[in-house]
Each structure stands twice: as C-alpha cells, then as structure tokens.
C-alpha cells in the first residue's frame, strides 16, 4: 500500500517539482525559500505561480480520488486477512480477496461517506450556520463551536464501527450485498455497543493525535541541507507507515470484536 501510494503521488509531485525548478532555472532566488516559502516571491513568479497552484490542486484532487479507490481495494484484502486468515494470507490470495470485495466495499465506503457528510452538516454545519445568521456575519463563537466539534468526534466511532462491522461481515460471509452488510454492521454494533464504541473511540483519538502531531512536525520542519532533506523524507515515510498500521489496527480490532457474533 505504502509503495503504491508513494509511486502514485510521485507521478504528480515530480512534474510539479520540475515545473517549479524550471521557473527558477539558474536563478538564486530559490535560496530565499530556504527558510520557508516567502510569499513575496509569488508575484515574481508571475503566471507560473498560478499555474503551479492550479496543477497542484487539480493533481491533489485526482490523487485523493485515486487513493480512495486504491485504499478501498486494499481494505478488501485486509478484512479477509483479519477475518478468515489470521494465520496469514499469501499475496495472491490477498489480491484475490481485495478484488472480490472491491465493489461491495466501495458501495459501503461511499454510503458511509454520505452518512458522515450529513452527520457533519447536522452537527457542525447547522449550528455554525445558525450562529452565523444570528451574529450577522460574525465568525461563530469558538467556545460554543468547540462543544459541537466534541459532539461530532464522539459520534464518529459509531459510523466507523458500522463501516468496519459491515466490511467484516462481507469478508466473513462472502456476500456482495452492501445494504445487507450495513444492516449487519448496525446489528453487530448494537450487540456490543459500548465495548465497540469505546474501543474505536480510543483508537480514533490515538489516530487523531498521531495525525495532528505528524502534520505539525512536517509543517514546522524546515530542513535546509541535502542530507537533512533526505532524512526528512525518510521520517515522513516512516510516519506514514505508522499511520497505515494504525488504520489496519482498527480493522483488526473491530474484526476481532465481531468474531463469534451472530448477526
């Protein structure tokens, strides 16, 4: 997963880097960026800056879409690995399981995204909109909004648990029926609600802390020498591998929780 993701992103990132370098060519102006991006240079870059930003955002959007499909595909293999093949899964079997589960997993992923979108609109969008209207354009009171953010986070394990139980049900039964799987997911959560909820909540909080911490590290690190930049690259990839393991940890935990449940 890691290497495929990396190669996929590099397909967009490397041309961007080349374009960026060609704007500067033999200029020494890039040295002004050694301590972080000096936005004053954006004007000097002229139209190239806008084109680079446009390419980066379009490329980023395409990468997210492709990544969504890729990770949904690999989730098929992972859930099979954690459901029916605890002893291990050969790469060919892993890929076969991924292929078999892809369509129902994609349906579940899309449905859950839709549910989480409405949930977010209800818990955060609606109160923010009401506060915005009441205060006539003022930014919503941060203190009050924090309460809604907390409620949102506390509700999130419910949807993640349902998604994981559903996918585990497909991996276990071999069924291709996404809606039935969702029903099974809700039933499984209902049978072991508090245990499932708090387990996923803890994993979620740990994930959020890890993501925030690693993003903070990445944003605020400004390595300037060649070797340091290479070490920085290795560090970010190590962090990403940890992140992948943490995601797989949630799949495995929920799969284990579902073991023995009749749903």
């Amino acid at each position: 997963m890691w290497i495929i993701t990396l190669v996929m992103i590099m397909l967009v990132a490397l041309p961007l880097k080349s374009s960026f370098k060609s704007v500067f060519d033999h200029s020494m102006a890039m040295e002004k960026l050694s301590g972080g991006f000096d936005a004053g240079l954006a004007g000097d870059m002229g139209k190239s800056f806008g084109q680079l930003m446009s390419s980066a955002s379009t490329g980023g959007l395409l990468l997210v879409m492709a990544g969504f499909l890729l990770y949904t595909f690999f989730a098929g293999g992972l859930f099979t690995r954690f459901t029916t093949a605890w002893g291990g899964l050969k790469p060919t079997a892993f890929m076969k399981a991924s292929t078999q589960n892809f369509v129902p997993f994609l349906k579940i992923a899309l449905l859950m995204c839709l549910i989480i979108f409405f949930y977010t609109s209800l818990i955060i969008g609606l109160p923010a909109g009401i506060m915005l209207a009441v205060s006539e354009g003022s930014i919503p009171q941060t203190g009050l909004m924090i309460i809604f953010y907390v409620i949102w986070v506390l509700g999130l394990p419910v949807w993640l648990s349902v998604a994981d139980y559903s996918r585990r049900w497909i991996a276990a039964t071999g069924s291709r029926l996404a809606f039935r799987a969702l029903g099974a997911g809700f039933r499984a959560l209902g049978k072991r609600f508090w245990l499932s909820y708090f387990t996923v909540l803890v994993i979620l909080i740990l994930n959020v802390m890890f993501v925030c911490g690693s993003m903070w590290f990445t944003a605020w690190s400004v390595p300037q020498k060649g070797l340091m930049i290479f070490l920085f690259f290795l560090a970010t990839q190590l962090l990403f591998l940890v992140r992948l393991f943490m995601k797989a940890w949630r799949y495995a935990t929920v799969s284990q929780l579902a073991a023995g449940l009749k749903v």
């Binding site: 993701t5 990396l6 992103i9 590099m10 967009v12 990132a13 980023g60 990468l63 997210v64 990544g67 969504f68 890729l70 990770y71 993501v211 690693s214 993003m215 990445t218 690259f233 970010t236 990839q237 962090l239 990403f240 992140r243 992948l244 995601k247």
Partner: peptide, 9 residues
C-alpha cells in the same frame, strides 16, 4: 507527498 498521503488515508 506526505500531505497527499495523509489526505488519502
């Protein structure tokens, strides 16, 4: 690259 990896995940 790292930003995109995290976004996807």
């Amino acid at each position: 690259v790292y930003l995109m990896q995290m976004m996807i995940s």
